[in-house]
């Protein structure tokens, strides 16, 4: 194991930054979902990395849970997209204002 924890952490930070950027800038629903996926993956990477370096099976277990939750989130998000697309014929987040009411 030549790599150290800090390397993985830095990759995770980079991914987190990209994800935040995507969330902030992109107005397309699907792109925002991509950004969320990237953030979740950054978190998973951290979980597994810490689990490895502070030897404990809990890191991997939590990562598994996290991936499962991500799957659930994507399923819900995409069905939301389908609904929105069906209602507005569009997937741009700014056109969904009437969803508020």
């Amino acid at each position: 194991m030549s790599n150290e924890l800090i390397d993985f952490t830095l990759v995770s930070v980079a991914l987190l930054g990209i994800g935040i950027y995507g969330l902030a800038v992109k107005r397309n629903f699907i792109r925002m979902l991509f950004a969320i996926e990237i953030i979740i993956n950054a978190a998973n990477l951290n979980l597994v990395a810490f689990g490895r370096f502070l030897p404990h099976s809990g890191g991997q277990t939590l990562a598994l849970f996290s991936i499962a939750i991500a799957a659930a989130e994507v399923a819900i998000g995409l069905s939301l997209i389908i609904v929105a697309y069906r209602m507005y014929q569009n997937i741009d987040i700014e056109d969904f204002r009437s969803l508020k009411g």
């Binding site: 991936i67 499962a68 799957a71 659930a72 994507v74 399923a75 995409l78 069905s79």
Partner: peptide, 8 residues
């Protein structure tokens, strides 16, 4: 949709 959940 079901596949995504039940695959997990």
């Amino acid at each position: 949709l079901m596949f995504v959940v039940f695959d997990v």
